[in-house]
Design a protein around this nucleic acid. Structure first.
Lengths: 217, 217
DNA sequence: ACATTAAACGGACCACGGTCCGCTTGCTCC
DNA sequence: GGAGCAAGCGGACCGTGGTCCGTTTAATGT
């Protein structure tokens, strides 16, 4: 989230990085000049519409700029590059999922015991990924970039927290990475679409894995 | 491996897909016309040299073609696209690793018990990835493509086999995916380079994970 | 109101990946 | 060794991502 511009604006953030992560549910694009803010929303709307019409693969920066009625340079200034635009777009759609596990009702939300929340987390993420796979996959041009996306970092710290809450022993950060890896969008898509594995089998695999790591339901 | 051309030549493979996977240690580029074969090796040599000189990011298809003394079209004909070239290049370098776990000495090779082989597998893969991270990361443009690379499929079926050999219960294919995901090149690079985690901690995490899945050493 | 200035804008420009198609060349079969 | 032909070749061509820089504009201070 944060819609932080990849390079142009630099890091004006003095000392609240930690809070920024916690608060980074869904994008507060930090203050922009009025014209810039207006163009930002125009661009996201245009991109969203074009993607729905012609698919992510056919989404060109120039067409987005034209549809939003701005110059191409403006798109790059705002989002850094094509991937940045796609990530910003994706960001818009993470709100519900994040609300569900941060503050929603049990079993995902904070009123359920940690182990239960953990068990509920995987299936919910996989369904979210199924629903947005085109955008997610399209935004994965650079394999390293995914780890820097705030939405991913939020998931990671959330899972690590749940592991600790469920009294799972060991390096919880590493285990969280492993758990998230097992429900990675690309893997899920590969297994369900190309290999024909039903999503329920993946749910089962998730529960099995979580249990083996020591978080009984 | 197999260096099978992504699209142009089509699927002339009648009914030995399974054997092909098993045999696909390191590339037998199926029979090519003499000039094509010669150009193929020239191209791989040129690409390898240019990559060493200027880095993977600066490797352009045109420069490779020029360095090999062929036309640009030839490069695309042979490797399909840039990613195909990078994967073919990577293929060349997988030989030692594959030999080590397919037919090398214990603890990786076939003369050790399955659980022990499994424990030895992770650290070996991670070191291989560390040594070739630039090429591996550069070849990961399309997140789905990685699953289709024969080297990956070989690792997958190998790990699944070891899991069965170690009498691990459950969906071994799914578990193998999870295990491989936990030592994915991008993740390892992220954790060691960007997060400063020592590789030994990842080794430890691997042993821990394998043990929790039920393969005691 | 006006001056000042940093930020935003936009489109010409460039480099690279990928395609296309007319030409050439190495194989196979007589 | 020659004919026929599928495979290979190469470079002109095109679309798109990304950069650059001269111009415009919104905010701020007086």
């Amino acid at each position: 989230m944060t819609g932080s511009l990849p390079l142009p604006p630099g890091p004006p953030d003095p000392g609240k990085a930690r809070q920024a992560l916690v608060l980074s549910t869904v994008g507060e694009p930090e203050q922009l000049r009025s014209d810039a803010a207006r163009n930002r929303t125009r661009l996201l709307d245009a991109a969203s519409r074009l993607m729905a019409e012609r698919g992510a693969a056919n989404l060109t920066m120039e067409s987005v700029a034209a549809a939003a009625g701005v110059g191409k340079g403006t798109v790059f200034r705002r989002f850094g590059d094509r991937t940045g635009l796609l990530i910003a777009l994706l960001d818009h759609r993470e709100g519900l999922l994040q609300a569900a596990f941060l503050s929603g009702p049990p079993p995902m939300g904070p009123d359920a015991p940690a182990a239960e929340r953990l068990h509920a987390f995987g299936p919910a993420v996989m369904r979210h990924e199924r629903d947005h796979h085109e955008l997610i996959l399209a935004s994965r041009t650079d394999p390293l970039r995914a780890y820097a996306v705030p939405a991913h970092r939020l998931r990671l710290s959330h899972v690590a927290m749940l592991l600790r809450g469920a009294r799972v022993e060991g390096d919880t950060e590493l285990l969280a990475h492993t758990l998230l890896g097992s429900i990675d969008a690309a893997l899920v898509h590969h297994l369900t679409r190309r290999r024909g594995m039903p999503l329920e089998a993946l749910d089962q695999g998730w529960h099995d894995l979580v249990s083996r790591l020591g978080a009984a339901r």
